[in-house]
């Protein structure tokens, strides 16, 4: 037990001294909707911000969030060039539903699947929806878990700040 505590202290110290560096999306293999394996290095948007969100076909708040953004997405793109990348964590049980589901809803985001939660785990996500905002260089500058109605406005505020090169504090 004592040893475990020491381990924790070391880790805590390490966290404190290294937490400052910029975080990026870890390099993990995911799949496209037609089953092709790709690496997360394909997340790219010509120097414009990216909203990276984790969802599933069985997750109500996730679907609410993606629907709410759907109504605004064109305006968002025109104003900031932002791209939305939606990674589904549906496993084999509902994986084959993802493509018909998103087409049926008429969503036009960039979709990937993470059937065994490899990327979800690598990004330390406990629950979905979990949303990250990446700046033009791919640095993770903001992160939020859960969705409540109106949450999309906050997302866009931050995207606009990043686009304008402003600080996102407050």
């Amino acid at each position: 037990m004592k040893k475990t505590l020491i381990v924790f202290q070391i880790v805590l110290l390490s966290v404190l001294s290294y937490a400052q560096s910029n975080k990026q999306v870890p390099s993990v293999q995911i799949k496209t909707l037609d089953g092709r394996t790709v690496n997360t290095s394909v997340f790219e948007n010509d120097g414009n911000p990216i909203i990276l969100t984790f969802w599933a076909t069985w997750c109500k708040p996730c679907i609410k969030e993606l629907s709410a953004i759907d109504d605004l997405y064109e305006d968002w793109q025109d104003e900031t060039g932002v791209k939305i990348i939606a990674v589904s964590v549906d496993d084999t049980r509902s994986l084959s539903k993802v493509k018909p589901f998103v087409d049926g809803r008429g969503w036009e985001y960039e979709f990937y699947t993470d059937a065994n939660s490899d990327l979800k785990r690598a990004m330390n996500i406990s629950d979905i929806p979990s949303t990250f905002i990446l700046d033009g260089e791919g640095n993770i500058v903001w992160q939020h878990t859960s969705y409540s109605e109106g949450g999309e406005h906050k997302l866009f505020e931050i995207v606009k700040k990043i686009k304008a090169g402003k600080s996102i504090e407050n």
Binding site: S96, K99, P100, F101, D103, G106
Partner: peptide, 17 residues
């Protein structure tokens, strides 16, 4: 044996499993 067949276009998605 697991089988899935799908058809989809914008606004319509069909899946048989």
């Amino acid at each position: 044996l697991l089988l899935n067949a799908r058809y989809s276009q914008k606004g319509l998605g069909i899946l048989l499993s």
